[in-house]
Design a binder for these strands. Structure first.
Lengths: 185, 185
DNA sequence: CAAAAGAAGTTGAGTTCTCAACAACAGGTA
DNA sequence: TACCTGTTGTTGAGAACTCAACTTCTTTTG
């Protein structure tokens, strides 16, 4: 078992702290200034950029990095507020279109400037040009490394896995002989 | 209003995607392999590193980047599973100690190797030495830039802010005259 | 010292998220 | 045609989180 070196440990904790701070602050800024939670904001953004401001639910889900389930709940709520409208899809009767309404677009227009300003102020303004470049590379490298895993993870492994969950999910069996595990999930 | 340049836009989206993928994958790995949600894992880690494996609730909260409220709920649950124990604090009668139990420590020992391995595999192994360095700098720069804001945000602004919240928090007052650019980050 | 101000923790209500199950349809195969 | 398999989207239950009170105790200040 290889643990993290001290340097890696330091970088890892800096990463955790920094990403948390940024998402915390941006989320709070968005929520307080425009009353839109960040995840809902991302839905509005994705729709606003789509042709006709309309996307299939599935495509919208992957654009927002949301599970289909979560998106379904979220869009249901956004529909109640009148920012998104759903309509049935004729080419594929299972499907559904989600479209941004005028009201939704207006809400986005109100929220965006403050959000973008915050992103600039707390991310790009504190980094050098070179750091920005490297940040892009790092992001790309992480994505490449995880693209395989996330394809699997994106819609959950539907394995049976008979969860009973009394209280906290009882810590999985051994972990010692995981190598010989016949059907680990 | 200054929007993001195309390059900034690219980097920003790479950042969002990469941090999401990483936290998604690590969280799922931890959950499935040891049955511990990532936030609970962080509580166990923080306690395990404290003298006597014991911390005041507040200190534990900031070590885990959790609100006092969230920590209180989480520790209540961890106490039910027998991994953490609370005891009253004599020097400060308002306070409470949280301690890691033997069972909690054992659970952590079971979970840690898999988690660390995943961090190494999907973060450090995909980066060059230099990228790791720069990542550390970037994290530090972001923290420095936000330390002021987050001091405020860490325990919420107790402003009155008369929230009514019928459905979605009605989009903040006017902010009427914004540049009419729909695209956002 | 007494009163106000602040800090530590908890609680309950409401919101969002996850997970597993499900219904409805599509596409292929026999 | 009937069947099997996979895809799309929704649902309900339960878990986790947020937010605003609230209680209890500490510290400050007049």
């Amino acid at each position: 078992m290889r643990w993290l070196t001290e340097r890696e440990q330091r970088v890892w904790r800096a990463y955790l702290q920094a990403t948390w701070m940024l998402s915390e602050h941006l989320g709070r800024q968005l929520q307080q200034e425009s009353g839109i939670p960040h995840t809902y904001y991302e839905i509005l953004v994705a729709l606003s950029e789509a042709p006709n401001r309309t996307l299939r639910m599935s495509d919208l889900a992957s654009a927002c990095r949301a599970s289909r389930s979560r998106l379904s709940h979220a869009v249901a709520k956004l529909e109640r507020t009148g920012w998104v409208r759903r309509s049935t899809c004729d080419e594929d009767k299972r499907g559904a279109w989600a479209s941004l309404t005028e009201a939704g677009f207006a809400a986005l227009e109100r929220a965006a400037p403050g959000h973008v300003t915050a992103v600039r102020e707390y991310l790009f303004d504190v980094l050098t040009e070179e750091q920005v470049d490297v940040l892009g590379q790092i992001g790309q490298a992480i994505q490449d490394g995880l693209s395989g895993e996330c394809a699997k993870a994106l819609e959950q492994v539907e394995e049976v896995y008979a969860a009973d969950s009394a209280e906290l999910p009882e810590v999985v069996p051994s972990a010692a002989e995981r190598a010989t595990d016949p059907e680990s999930a």
